[in-house]
Simulated scan of single mutants.
Amino acid sequence: MKLAVIGGTGLIGSQVVKNLNASGHEAVPHSPSTGVDVLSGKGLDEAVTGADVVVNLTNSPTFDEASLAFFQTSMDNLLAAAHKGGVGHFVILSIVGVDQVPELDYYRAKTLQENILTAGPIPYSIVRATQFMDFMDAVLSWTAEGDTVRLPATPIQPIASKDVARAVAEVAVGTPLRGIHKVAGPEVFPLDELGRITLSCKGDNRKVVTDPTAGMFAVVKGDVLTDMNAHLAPTRYTDWLA
Rank of each mutant, 00 (worst) to 15 (best):
L3N: 03
I6K: 07
G8M: 09
T9M: 11
L11C: 09
S14C: 00
V16I: 01
V17W: 06
V17L: 03
N19V: 13
A22Q: 15
G24S: 02
V28D: 05
S31I: 06
D37P: 10
G41Q: 10
E46M: 08
N56D: 15
S60K: 00
F63D: 07
E65K: 14
A66R: 15
S67F: 03
A69I: 07
Q72P: 07
M75I: 13
L78V: 07
L78F: 12
A82H: 09
G85Y: 02
V87L: 03
V96K: 04
V98D: 10
Q100R: 15
P102F: 13
D105Q: 11
Y107K: 04
A109S: 15
K110M: 12
L112H: 12
E114M: 13
G120V: 01
G120A: 12
Y124F: 15
V139G: 06
L140S: 08
E145T: 11
I156N: 07
P158N: 04
V164D: 06
V173I: 08
R178F: 09
A184K: 08
A184E: 08
E187F: 12
P190E: 00
L191V: 02
D192L: 08
S200C: 04
S200R: 13
G203V: 04
R206W: 02
V219M: 11
V219E: 13
V219A: 13
L225D: 02
L225T: 06
D227K: 05
M228W: 11
H231G: 09
T235F: 05
W240R: 06
